[in-house]
Amino acid sequence: MKLNDRLAADLDGSFEAFVRSHQDAVYSAALRLTLSRTDAEDVAQDVFVRAYKALCGFDRERILALSTKPWLARITLNVVRNKARTNGRRPQTTALDVDPADTAPGPDSKAVEADGHAALIDKLAALPDIYRGPVVLRHAYGLSYDEVAEVLGRPVGTVKAQVSRALQTLKESS
């Protein structure tokens, strides 16, 4: 039975399986967009809570017709944007959140076990916002160009160019 069918038939009974099947992708996308492990966890949790609440209000046909992956990507982008806005508005809170004992190698160093990972986070941080969304959705999250274009509301050609330019920048900046 497809996951969409199960969600439509018994949301409460199948939601755990739904989270399991998408959590790594959503978390990875959130990590590459927020560049912080703590923020990524908050974002991913919020994404699934929002998804659940939305699914509660959807009728059967809408759930059956739902492309869950692009839909979750859309929610993730919204939550990341809201999170950035709140963090910007309350920078003192974020600063206090950091445990001093934790800061020695940088609060997000746990995110970067591998050398490649550390480099990636640095490079993504340097990437302009307009490129980060497309490249993360296409490469880490794994949407097709068409889906990325639809989720971002940009033309497919633009998205392809942005992904390609982002990859070029990531390669060159090593």
Binding site: V19, Q23, Y27, S28, H117
Partner: peptide, 21 residues
């Protein structure tokens, strides 16, 4: 490595599912 890291998924923290539920 860093381009591989872009594509390879990070495992969500174990507490995530619990907290969502």
């Amino acid at each position: 490595d860093s381009l591989d890291a872009l594509d390879s998924l990070d495992a969500a923290p174990p507490a995530l599912l619990d907290n969502v539920l």
